[in-house]
Structures are given as structure tokens and as C-alpha cells.
Design a protein around this nucleic acid. Sequence first.
DNA 1: ATGGTGGACAATCCA
Length: 257
Amino acid sequence: MKIATYNVNSIRSRLHIVLPWLEKNKPDYFCLQETKVADDKFPVAEFAVQDYHVIYQGNKQYSGVAIASRNKLQKVSFGLDDQPADPERLIVATYDDLTIINTYVPQGQDKESPQYAYKLAWFGRLKKYLQKHLISQNSIIWCGDLNVAPENIDVHDPKRILGHVCFNPDVWQAYNEVKSWGFVDVFRLHHPNEAGQYTFFDYRVRDSVERKMGWRVDHILATKSLAGRSQSCNIDLASRLREKPSDHVIVYAEFKG
DNA sequence: ATGGTGGACAATCCA
């Protein structure tokens, strides 16, 4: 089983990257974030040509999540239980014995903004959702743009970046609270202590890829039993070097069975 | 120390 995650920063502007990647790599599941498209304009047909069925929830300007898959979908829901519903940030989908939680975690703007408090609370709401609806002994993936770089080795300049909404003790605690429900960071499992492996390079930083000024904020986590079946997890830096790239890159993992 | 770019949409918001 192969799964990938990609913050596309507009699906309609990234089809030239997504479609060839699907054709070449044939993932079973492809999770997208920041699709930036209303549901009635989602490019369903372009995925169908490659035999991918797609589920999605979005709005015309911000956020939006989707999962493309070739497998039969058993069950799908969008958003957390409580209000505001925030449906365009979370898909929970079940395919056979696998459940995928695809999230676009709120970025948080800056530490003084209400959006940052909302972000921290959002992790707490997600943990409550897990406790209510899912069982950590099952095969579950949590992936997406989690807007957290978990450790010093996940950013290029930890001293300078410390205090950013994606890199500080509060956000680490909020993230780790969810992770401690039963998730393993599959990338770190296969690349322990390996620095300089990033999934996001800001458009606004000149030559950020060449200068390795990145962040590892896009993740694939798996429950323990499933992580035990993982064979690899890698970052496809080439997806940031294409023409008109997203500022994020594709992360993908393979599992036995 | 500020602003840089790119996406949505069509004046700004978001990252």
C-alpha cells in the first residue's frame, strides 16, 4: 500500500504536477490540502481519466482537502464534531480496513492572533474526535499539512525560527497530545536524526530550495501496528523544482500488504 | 528590519 500527501496550494494550478505523479507512482491514496476550489468546480474528470475516485470538501478561496484513491470507499466524513464545523480542513475516510485522516491544520498567522489560539484548540478537538470515533489498535493514517515542525532537525535555523506559530513549545505540546493517542511519525521512523529533510519552502524566501531554507511540516503518521508494516517514507523534492510548483512538496510512504 | 511570491478573486486575505 502506497500513500502520498501534498499541499497543492490550489489543485487547479497544480494538475501538471499531480497527474504525472499519479501516473508514474500509482499511489493507492493521494491526500491533498489547500485545494482552493469550490466543490462544484473540483476537477473530478481529470482524476477519473487515471481511474482515481476523489472525495473533497472545499470553498472557493482558502483551505480545502481531498483524497484520490483507486480503492472502494466504505465511509467518509468531513470536519470535526463541534462548531465551527471547519469541514474544509479534515477528511476521515475508511477503505477496507484502513482509515485515513487527512488534515490541513490551521496555520495560526502569529502568536497574538485569534487564529493561533484556534490552531492550538484545533489539535485538542482533533484528539477528542479520535477518542470518540476511532480505535488506536486499528490501521489508521494521520497525514497532511500539520503546520508543525516537530524538532530542531525539522527546520533550517531552529534558533531564529523558535517562537514561530509552527515551531514553539505550545504547538509542539498540542501536536504531541494528538500524536500520543497512538501515532508514529513514519518519516522519522525511517530517517532517525536525519536533518535537512524538508517539505515546505516559502515562496518569499529567495532560492529557498537551493539554500535549503525549508521546514518539515507535512507528515505521514500511522498507528503503531500499521507503522510496523511501513517499508519506507520519502520526500519528493523534485515536486518543488517543477515549473510553477507548490511551496510544499509531496511526501509518500509504502506499507506491506 | 522589512518585505519578499504566489494563489484565490477582483479589494484584500492567506500562507
